[in-house]
Write a protein that binds this DNA or RNA. Sequence first.
DNA 1: GCAATGACTGGAG
DNA 2: CCTCCAGCCATTG
Length: 111
Amino acid sequence: MDKDTFFDKVYEVVRQVPAGRVTSYGAIAEFLGMKGSARMVGYAMNVCRSASPPVPAHRVVNRNGLLSGKHHFPTPELMEQMLESEGVAVEEDQVVDFKKLFWHPAQELQV
DNA sequence: GCAATGACTGGAG
DNA sequence: CCTCCAGCCATTG
């Protein structure tokens, strides 16, 4: 409780990601003012299993749009399954039109 | 308190 | 084009 840690901030941002959109670790890190510490974002995702409420980590991919963390899901196929279910095409463990579906935290939250 | 780790990124070779 | 290296910073042991 009172987990005002960096992780909770990451969770909030990820939860703001609308379905059908994807974002990158660096984008979140940058939004939190920690550009360069994208590793922390990924690390936070690792803890997202213990986080509440659950975080749609499947909407978070690396800067290449690659489902780098799919192996960390209950099942590796679940990640792309979720993305496709939301309208995000996934091919070769990679998000199709990633840059087109890219979601900028500050950009959307600014509205 | 120190050392190791990590679902990343960007630059250099 | 592909691979390797170093930086980043918070969490955990």
